[in-house]
Design a protein around this nucleic acid. Sequence first.
DNA 1: ATGAAAGCGCTAACAC
DNA 2: GTGTTAGCGCTTTCAT
Lengths: 362, 362
Amino acid sequence: MTDDPTLPPTDPAALDDEAPAIPPRRPMTLRDVSEASGVSEMTVSRVLRNRGDVSETTREKVLAAAKQLGYVPNKIAGALASSRVNLVAVIVPSLRNMVFPEVMSGISEVLDDTPLQPVLGFTDYRPEKEEDVLYEMLSWRPSGVILAGLEHSAASRAMLKASGIPVVEIMDTDGEAIDAVVGISHRRAGRETARAIVRQGYESIGFIGTKMPLDHRARKRFEGFTEALAKDGREIVDQEFYEGGSGLLKGRELTQKILQRSPDLDFIYYSNDMIGAGGLLWCLENGVGVPQRLGLAGFNGMELLDGLPARLATMDAGRREIGRAAARIVAERASGALTETGQRLELAPNLQYGDTLRRPKV
Amino acid sequence: MTDDPTLPPTDPAALDDEAPAIPPRRPMTLRDVSEASGVSEMTVSRVLRNRGDVSETTREKVLAAAKQLGYVPNKIAGALASSRVNLVAVIVPSLRNMVFPEVMSGISEVLDDTPLQPVLGFTDYRPEKEEDVLYEMLSWRPSGVILAGLEHSAASRAMLKASGIPVVEIMDTDGEAIDAVVGISHRRAGRETARAIVRQGYESIGFIGTKMPLDHRARKRFEGFTEALAKDGREIVDQEFYEGGSGLLKGRELTQKILQRSPDLDFIYYSNDMIGAGGLLWCLENGVGVPQRLGLAGFNGMELLDGLPARLATMDAGRREIGRAAARIVAERASGALTETGQRLELAPNLQYGDTLRRPKV
DNA sequence: ATGAAAGCGCTAACAC
DNA sequence: GTGTTAGCGCTTTCAT
């Protein structure tokens, strides 16, 4: 897991909890270990990274001294000297949306088996902030970049291209990638949902979702959705947009509002599971027959849905798998095992009917 | 937000999206900018960090050259030379538990206004992994460390003490801190919940929670809870422990199970809101009168609770505020504005009765 | 198997 | 206001 498998963390006995009244100001250096062990800096370095042949005796001497001094290597210096930085920049909109923690676990799961370490940055869905964060990250000369979405400022794209490191854009495949991509087509997700809805005989369809200028993936799902409806000669009868606030609560409020205004709706498509779940709860409480009188569908395949009174129809975006695949690409490219660039992995979205979308008769 | 407010990110026009067929392998250096602008490296460095006086003319020359070349500074080199690293290590168990994303947003909110940048590490609730991650992090010589909990291996504590950088332990205040602490007392949270329950006349009390050897805060709440009951001559009548899986679903299952086994229970205390919410949903569906026949309480004050059919009693842990406060301490200490160490901030847990705990008559 | 010398790309500390 | 000189703590390369 760590870069230096042989070097045990500071010896608790040597650097005891209670001992030093005046904590050492200056961190230990290789030179300190070298002097303490009577072995050259170079050989100490070899032992600590176990590279090259070192006799068992010197090895032990060095390890003992390092432990004794509580030596912690300085990666800054190491990175500068070797021009190798085992950091992977991961840039996502935010952690508030449960989607990204899940992607992150996929990423760390894979990186945990490599010397690479993720460094996280947030964009708050703002391209200018993305640009700043990216600049900041790239100035650490990471081994790779994983970032959400395909929409970036021209400057961001330029920086990424010029960086010469593996870049993996994740979550979305609708658009032109800078280098590698791993994700699903949100247009397709929207289309497939629309088709399933129409196929099940729903006719008067409404939409509730986030205000989308900022969220390209939600926008693309919406576009795919309306496009597929249009192909069928249909269009969205009514819609509501929101921003901020608790998803569940918004889902309730807006569902009530839209049904009040358009009581004839027989289906509502939600831009995510959270508001969808809110809508579902509202319907259950207010005696709206789901899925016969009213069908509902969300998007994401969130684990949360499993415990609700009824299972919301949804489409799994495979977030964890996306994280894993992206990390794998970066890890392989960074290790030199893979030299090819521009790999493209489009996962198939998987519609789950749950209890809120009439099922196809088999 | 960034370290170098004056240096605009790569010029999109200069380093165009389409232009270079062979992307430059070697990143630009200060020397490159120096040569391109005919200004000494040192002055270039000054301009790029806007330190010291530089004439407007040279300034412009340098900026133009940097932009033109798509120069991105090398923080590795900068950090080594200045022995200043604007990184803050943040170490949490995982991101799966919504608590930590929220703490993180508090942290980034504050750090966004400073030159500091958070770097995230995960322990998976395992002390050995925490030790590894910490070692890894400290080898980057960060400006500070924020980490969850007060329980760490002796080696971890030793490393932290020896590091000589600000250390803030968060979430929990029950125990001995290494340096600064920001959090709540989970023992007190458990005690106060127990007292409120008893005060409202509940008599036969059950507990459902995670298996706790790993989760010290859940354990402490449990201990505080049982301790307060004991003071009242009471004890927990029945209990269930679980691990893994969807919180909501587990909450349902275990609530059913415990009520089947101990139908006389008139209160269930849950170790977190997620299973509590599952239990609540089960009760509502199965006609268990809440809060009269059966009272329920969770812990965390999760936003999710707002959209459920009834509001679960809970206790807000102020996660976001904890993140903010911790980040503030690190930022002030790192900037030298604060030299004092060992600050201690204990937030008061705030009980919310919701709809599942009989309210005190006023 | 071990060591010596020369940087990695930047900034601190001084000159001028 | 600008330039020069030394490193920062490692690793690379080449000797031995």
